[in-house]
Write a protein that binds this DNA or RNA. Structure first.
Length: 616
RNA sequence: GCCGUCAUAGUUCAAUGGAUAGAACAGUCCCGUCCUAAGGGAUAGAUGUAGGUUCGAUUCCUGCUGACGGCACCA
């Protein structure tokens, strides 16, 4: 029907000869109806650079439009200066309700991203936690956003692959291993004997390595700061006290040994720590509902990166990269960017350098049309440089790679630091949310197993919704004291609405009321319920276009906002009138709308990565 | 210092240059024979500041103020 309206407008624009006057349709949005009216309304604003006022223009348009027969529209009127409302027929609305019931899980899906019969291939790389470091609530945010973008893109018909890139080598790992050596439990030559054994719960084993990292990183920084404070610095302002140079060399040696796997003892400890880390990540992914297609590691990317970079470095190779102070750099200034180091003086690739090794690995695994890396916006400048390098280096796919950044999840206490231990781990946040959900369900008559399952879903929903309700570019301020909301504009509110609808449908089934949509019956339900029911219907109709908009703008919050409105409309309707009543002639249609609501809400929540318990 | 992002109600967030700037939480006041009150209803409350462009600016441009991020061997 939207299409029909657009076409009619285009025709009218031509007929009135406004094309030359540069007249544009500048807005198209749904408007809500006066109480007691049923139809969906679509408003348009007409702006122009000509002399006529928007009001006069709207009047002129409406006169002309009334001459046309637009399918599904039975009333057109001027709604204000430049606004025209199109009233959709009762029949058309009911047809959409019937369609929702028929299509079920598939309602809302489209083929917008199918090009010439082939689905667009879209890659999302997201979450990217580092083994040996904690999976903190920032990773929770990254995962939530990446997953919902991936799901959103899938609803529009694309073939989506999910990749996860993990930093299993680098200074943080070296500091962890070094930190282990500082622990009282550590004895040289004892190999892995001092580590917790497999009977200890996984989370504690991982925490042991986390503690080692904190210890190593703190000690390293202490010595560095002491050196600086004592004025023991070189020309570049870097610490150079004897003690610092000694431990720095030690850490550098460990780092190299990890990269090139030259030390059997380190390898043994490293492999175990990495395995435990990855296992704990996997447990979280399962809880969060992410299934990655492929995992990539910095250790593997490093080897390729070193080779590729050398090929393009002056004086040996082509002129993309340069040597400078013993390091290999990319002179970004030539491209209006800043210079970054790719290979350190020690001969190890930096994060920037590794990206060069990673890119072809990713493209080799999935020849995407659109390759997206989702990270926090602190990496914006880094990606500007990195993508510039990829375009120069890999003409066949470099320009297909993109970066989408999201805001940071920050605590009211400031930035998180895994070095000082001032982090909230993903696991602990979820656990405390689960406890809260369980306490709310105390009175519910359900088996403990179901309660636990439901509490998990509620906890994840509360966290995910908090992240997804706002535009992804903005920071999320998280107050660990106030915790997350289970009321109002929240994930659990949406779940609760869905559970309520299910409960209505169960009752309808018990009472033997079979939902029915009679398209030919355009009679009106008594007025006090009509406004609330009408609003619910109007919103249901808009679901497919909401998904389309959210995907094209890469904004999951568009879906979140929509679902919130939808659930509010349902709850308002629910509270105003009994839905299931055996002697109510309209009950069958009302139940049908509730079924449609249940389907749409569930489909919408799925896009956000939120599951719905049967009871809560 | 340079580059970038942001500033909407007491708080946390919405609003392709257009209709009366929407919600939620917190506040005040209502709603329990009913399909789950994690709910519903009522009430009060906001575009940082000074200009500019426009018929029209929360939205675009400039200055100012404030917050955050990035800027050579961390990831």
């Amino acid at each position: 029907m939207r299409h029909a309206i657009k076409q009619a407008l285009t025709t009218v624009v031509e007929e009135l000869g406004y094309k030359d006057l540069n007249l544009d349709i500048v807005l198209e949005r749904p408007a809500d109806m006066a109480k007691g009216d049923f139809a969906t309304s679509i408003a348009l604003v007409l702006a122009k650079k000509a002399s006529k006022s928007p009001l006069a223009l709207a009047i002129e348009f409406v006169d002309k439009l009334k001459e046309k027969q637009i399918s599904s529209i039975d009333k057109i009127e001027v709604a204000g200066p430049g606004f025209i409302n199109f009233y959709v027929t009762r029949k058309a609305t009911k047809e959409v309700i019937a369609k929702i019931l028929e299509e079920g899980d598939l309602f809302g899906k489209s083929k917008n991203l199918v090009i010439g019969g082939a689905p667009k291939k879209v890659l999302y790389e997201y979450t990217d936690p580092n083994p040996f470091k904690v999976f903190h609530i920032g990773h929770l945010m990254a995962n939530t956003i990446g997953e919902s973008l991936a799901r959103l893109t899938e609803t529009q018909g694309a073939e989506v692959k999910r990749f996860c890139y993990q930093g299993d080598v680098g200074r943080h790992v070296a500091l962890t291993i070094w930190g282990l050596r500082l622990m009282p439990e550590y004895k040289e030559g004892n190999h892995i004997g001092f580590l917790p054994d497999e009977s200890v719960p996984l989370s504690e084993r991982v925490a042991f390595f986390g503690k080692a990292y904190a210890l190593g990183a703190t000690k390293y920084k202490e010595v560095e700061d002491a050196s600086k404070k004592a004025g023991q610095v070189n020309e570049a302002g870097l610490a150079n006290s004897e003690e610092f140079l000694k431990i720095d060399e030690e850490v550098q040696n460990i780092n190299k040994a990890i990269y090139f796997r030259t030390d059997p003892e380190i390898n043994e400890i490293y492999d175990l720590g990495k395995e435990w880390s990855l296992q704990s990540f996997e447990e979280l992914y399962q809880l969060l509902g992410t299934k990655f297609d492929r995992y990539f590691f910095e250790s593997a990317a490093s080897i390729d990166a070193l080779n590729i970079i050398k090929e393009h470095t002056v004086p040996e190779g082509k002129k993309l990269f340069e040597e400078s102070n013993g390091a290999v750099i990319f002179p970004g200034e030539k491209y209006g960017l800043h210079t970054r180091v790719l290979i350190t003086r020690q001969g190890l690739p930096t994060y920037d350098g590794k990206e060069i090794g990673l890119a072809p690995m990713k493209y080799g695994a999935f020849q995407y049309d659109d390759g997206i890396t989702v990270t926090a916006n602190e990496q914006d400048d880094f990606f500007k440089v990195s993508l510039c390098i990829l375009r120069e280096l890999f003409p066949e796919f470099g320009s297909k790679a993109r970066h989408i950044s999201h805001g940071m999840l920050r605590l009211t206490t400031g930035k998180m630091s895994s070095r000082t231990g001032d982090v909230i781990t993903g696991e602990s946040l979820i656990a405390s949310m689960i406890d809260l959900a369980l306490s709310k369900m105390k009175e519910r008559d359900m088996p403990d197993e179901d309660k636990k399952k439901a509490a998990e879903m509620i906890a994840v929903a509360a966290i995910k919704y908090t992240v997804l309700r706002q535009a992804i570019g903005k920071d999320v301020v998280f107050d660990p004291e106030k915790s997350l909301s289970f009321e109002g504009d929240s994930g659990p509110y949406l779940q609760y609405s869905c559970v309520r609808a299910k409960s209505v449908l169960d009752k309808a089934q018990r009472e033997g009321i079979i939902e029915m949509v009679d398209v030919s019956d355009i009679s009106v339900i008594p007025s006090e319920t009509s406004a609330k029911l009408g609003r619910l219907e109007n919103l249901l109709v808009r679901f497919p276009e909401t998904l389309e908009k959210a995907q094209s703008e890469e904004s999951p919050h568009v879906v979140a906002t929509y679902l919130m409105e939808l659930a509010a409309a349902f709850n308002s309707f629910y509270a105003s009138v009994p839905i299931v009543q055996i002697d109510d002639f309209e009950s069958r249609y009302k139940v049908a709308v509730v079924r449609a609501f249940h389907i749409v809400l569930k489909n919408g929540l799925k896009v956000l990565g939120i599951q719905v318990p049967l009871k809560m």
